[in-house]
């Protein structure tokens, strides 16, 4: 007894010190949390989605609280991939973070160019293709819900980089398995699911939408059963592909549920806003769970719930 469980998570060529990551867009560029969280203790930091040129994002209000969740329509505001590589990436490396860069675009060509720049930079461990952002007028989600487009983007990016590729997919097109299979066939090494669900919120007193762009993406504890459903379904159709579960994870128990359903790793999203240290608490909670129940590794519990 008293053996420390093996926390490593292997996602194809990408090996993480533990399976707990912070999700794209919910941890800023990562550096904003440096004073509150030891980034080197996380499995990985997934950055805000990066585009070829700076994006201003959508007009406010951009966020609305909903029952056990929230809607956002940030619109991929970011400083562009060049500023990230020059300004931010060195600070993330200095902090000891394992960096997964989230790549977004309006066109296939934009994904390719952003990915190419990131793969020339020092210190990026993998790329996560955001094929699922619901808050873009063009690109984003449409690439992730039509399997033939998914395959085209992944294949094109695959040509432009040697880095491990993760495809982050959307639940808004129905079943995710077809797009997941297309992504894997085109060269994605892991699938991340789910991105936010389309939703609206209405202000009854002002008689208007609560988001300026009307439609946003729903996240938070409310979406956890949906995320777990999709994880479980995709696990059935892709039994050997590394899967990263994300959606409503707010505790170690939530993360363990995803792993039991077949996730190789788990991302924490909205919960970071409410409790900035939650990801580290989940790492410790997972370690405690394995120790308490006598499991030698994270791998030992993966997929136990079929």
């Amino acid at each position: 007894m008293g053996l420390t469980p093996d926390m490593q998570a292997a996602l194809g060529r990408l090996t993480l010190r533990n399976p707990i990551m912070v999700a794209a867009g919910t941890f800023g560029y990562g550096v904003e949390y440096r004073d509150l969280v030891d980034l080197s203790e996380l499995g990985a930091v997934v950055t805000r989605s990066l585009t070829l040129t700076p994006r201003m994002g959508n007009p406010p209000p951009r966020v609305a609280e909903t029952p056990a969740g929230m809607l956002n329509a940030i619109g991929l505001q970011n400083d562009g991939v060049d500023a990230f590589i020059i300004e931010t990436l060195p600070r993330l490396r200095e902090a000891g973070a394992t960096v997964i860069a989230s790549v977004a675009g309006e066109t296939l060509e934009e994904y390719v160019q952003v990915a190419a720049k990131l793969s020339r930079a020092e210190g990026v461990a993998a790329l996560e293709l955001n094929l699922s952002c619901p808050n873009q007028a063009r690109g984003g989600m449409e690439f992730g819900v039509q399997p033939e487009l998914t395959a085209q983007v992944v294949a094109a990016v695959r040509q432009a980089t040697d880095l491990p590729l993760i495809a982050k997919l959307s639940p808004n097109g129905g079943e995710i398995a077809p797009a997941a299979q297309a992504a894997v066939a085109a060269g994605a090494e892991a699938i991340c699911l789910i991105n936010t669900l389309l939703g609206v919120a209405v202000d009854a007193h002002r008689r208007q939408f609560r988001l300026a762009s009307k439609v946003g993406g729903l996240s938070g504890p409310a979406v956890k059963p949906i995320a777990q459903y999709h994880l479980w379904r995709v696990r059935q159709s892709l039994p050997d592909t590394p899967l990263i579960g994300v959606g409503g994870v707010s505790s170690a128990e939530d993360a363990i549920e995803f792993i039991l359903l077949g996730a190789h790793a788990v991302q924490i999203g909205t919960a970071n806003y409410v409790q900035p240290t939650i990801a580290l608490e989940i790492v410790q909670g997972l370690r405690d769970y394995l120790t308490t129940h006598g499991f030698p590794s994270v791998d030992a519990i993966r997929g136990l719930v079929q």
Binding site: T26, G57, P59, T270
Partner: peptide, 17 residues
């Protein structure tokens, strides 16, 4: 005043032009 989910500068919800 702005809706503020995180207060830490990460979520970009409290955007001011």
């Amino acid at each position: 005043d702005a809706p503020m989910p995180c207060g830490m500068g990460v979520c970009l919800g409290c955007a001011v032009k």
